[in-house]
């Protein structure tokens, strides 16, 4: 038995595999939240992305290197449209962000629009035609320990790493990132120095939504890989908790995503190894963690200490008095 069959290596490798959609979804959410808009529609947007990606992969002809990018693009657009609704409701009409986000998830999510579309498109009866396969990067897939963990993942995982680096650089090293954080901390201040608050909020909610679309595509093109009704199974909510868990910082969120990924894969891995722990208990672990994180973070004062954007959840109206 090689070292790569060691249970810790297996768990770490699958943690990264299962954590990948969480990385995309939480990155998207952090962009929206850094602009001051809470979007609880992540789950719904992910399912929109998943169904769009599944349709393209099943119905568009051509080689994988053409179809898969198209599928990702379709997932991004579908989820971004959902995010645009949320943006219009919360930024322009100043609807309560929590209500609007929940509505988006109910509207687009399981037993909603995504299920309807999958139904009329007859998805889910067979695996998708093209999926993201594990790569053998630099021929190191079998290298001891690091091989399966780092060099035997799908392209989506490697793209997610680039996204994390990009988002960190964008948020903390660029002018636009500084402006974005200012909009989320104090829209009044940002407005008074000429930063277009509304444009920043729209842009980041919509782009953040498109990230949730990629996260959805991770399920239908990589993890499952076919369409299953409600296939994201609450991972959108975990992504929301991750943003808090990672103090609104992409690098820490990546760590958190893999921690949750490990918890998600635990039941499968341990079951395969014949451990006698209730699978129901193991499967529930990530959600229990989510509840714990959200309870800790729901206290407003602890939110401030954790580094939440000060204006998160608050609509902005310039001529208010």
């Amino acid at each position: 038995m090689s070292i790569n069959d060691n249970i810790f290596v297996v768990i770490m490798a699958s943690a990264i595999f299962y954590g990948t959609p969480l990385v995309f979804a939480s990155l998207g959410e952090v962009l929206a939240e850094r602009s001051g808009v809470l979007n609880l529609g992540v789950e719904g947007m992910m399912l929109l992305g998943a169904v769009a990606a599944a349709w393209v992969s099943t119905n568009v002809g051509g080689p994988a290197f053409v179809v898969l990018p198209l599928a990702i693009l379709a997932a991004m657009v579908a989820a971004a449209l959902g995010a645009a609704i949320h943006a219009f409701l919360t930024i322009t009409l100043r609807v309560n962000q929590i209500i609007s986000g929940l509505a988006l998830t109910i509207f687009a999510g399981a037993a909603g629009l995504s299920s309807y579309l999958a139904g009329i498109w007859h998805l889910g009866q067979s695996p998708v035609a093209h999926q993201f396969l594990r790569l053998d990067v630099f021929g190191l897939a079998d290298a001891p320990v690091v091989g399966p963990i780092l060099f035997h993942q799908t392209l989506l995982t490697y793209i997610s790493w680039i996204f994390v680096l990009g988002a960190s650089f964008y948020l903390f090293k660029t002018r636009m990132g500084l402006h974005l954080r200012a909009v989320g901390e104090s829209p009044q201040t940002a407005d008074s120095v000429g930063i277009p608050v509304v444009r920043y909020r729209y842009a980041h909610v919509i782009i953040g939504g498109s990230f949730a679309g990629i996260a959805g595509a991770c399920f239908s093109l990589m993890i499952v890989p076919t369409w299953v009704d409600g296939m994201t199974a609450g991972q959108g909510w975990i992504a929301l908790a991750l943003v808090i868990f990672g103090f609104w910082r992409p690098d820490l969120m990546l760590v958190g995503a893999y921690l949750f990924g490990a918890l998600s894969s635990l039941s499968l891995t341990l079951q395969a190894r014949g451990f006698h722990i209730s699978t129901a208990f193991l499967a529930a672990l990530p959600y229990v963690m989510t509840i714990v994180v959200l309870v800790i973070a729901s206290n407003a004062s602890s939110r401030r200490q954790l580094g939440a954007p000060a204006a998160l959840g608050k609509p902005y109206e310039r001529e208010e008095r």
Binding site: R181, E185, T189, V193, A310
Partner: peptide, 17 residues
């Protein structure tokens, strides 16, 4: 004041400039 407490002095001044 239109200042962001968690930002540095320089960041606040450079904001939008």
């Amino acid at each position: 004041f239109r200042l962001i407490p968690t930002f540095s002095v320089a960041e606040n001044i450079a904001l939008g400039s």
